[in-house]
Computed example of a mutant assay.
Amino acid sequence: MERFIDAAPGVRLWTEDRGATDTSPLLLIMGAQAPGLGWPDGLVDMLTPHHRVIRYDHRDTGRSTWAFDRRPYPLGQLAEDALAVLDGLDVERAHVVGMSLGGMLAQLLIADHPDRLLSATLIGTSALSTVPYIHPDGTRIPPEELPGIAPRLLEMWSRPVVDLGLEAELERRVEHWRILGGDQLPFDAEYARSLERKAVEHTGHYTTSTAHGRADASDLNRTEQLARASVPTLVTSAPAEPVFPPPHPQHLAQAIQGARIIEIPGMGHALPPEVHTPLVAAILDHTTGR
Rank of each mutant, 00 (worst) to 15 (best):
M1Y: 15
E2Q: 15
E2V: 13
I5E: 00
A8G: 02
A8I: 05
V11C: 15
L13N: 00
A20W: 11
T21L: 11
S24H: 10
P25V: 11
L27T: 03
M30F: 04
M30T: 10
P40R: 10
G42H: 07
L43C: 08
V44M: 06
D45E: 15
R52L: 08
H58Y: 08
H58F: 12
R59Q: 07
R59T: 05
T61Y: 03
S64C: 04
W66T: 00
A67E: 12
F68Q: 05
R70K: 13
R70W: 09
Y73D: 01
P74Q: 10
Q77D: 14
A82T: 06
A84S: 14
A84N: 12
V85Y: 02
D87W: 12
G88P: 09
D90I: 07
R93E: 11
G98M: 03
G103M: 05
A106F: 03
Q107D: 02
L108R: 05
L108H: 03
A111N: 05
D112A: 04
D112I: 01
L118S: 07
A120W: 00
L122M: 06
T125Y: 01
H135Q: 10
P136S: 09
P136F: 07
D137R: 11
G138L: 07
T139R: 15
R140V: 06
P142F: 04
L146W: 01
G148M: 13
G148N: 09
I149Y: 13
I149S: 07
R152Q: 15
M156Q: 14
W157V: 06
D163I: 01
L166V: 09
E167V: 04
E167K: 11
L170I: 15
E171L: 09
R172Y: 12
R173Q: 13
H176Q: 11
R178P: 06
P186K: 09
E201S: 13
G204D: 14
H205E: 08
T207C: 08
T210A: 11
T210N: 14
A211V: 05
S218V: 12
S218F: 12
D219L: 11
T223E: 01
Q225V: 00
R228Y: 08
R228C: 03
P232F: 07
V235Q: 03
V235E: 04
V235M: 06
S237D: 08
V243P: 02
P249E: 03
H251C: 04
A255V: 00
A259P: 00
R260Y: 10
I262F: 05
I264H: 03
G266H: 10
A270I: 03
P272Q: 05
P272W: 05
P273Y: 10
P278Q: 09
L284V: 12
H286D: 04
H286A: 13
H286I: 07
R290G: 11
R290D: 11
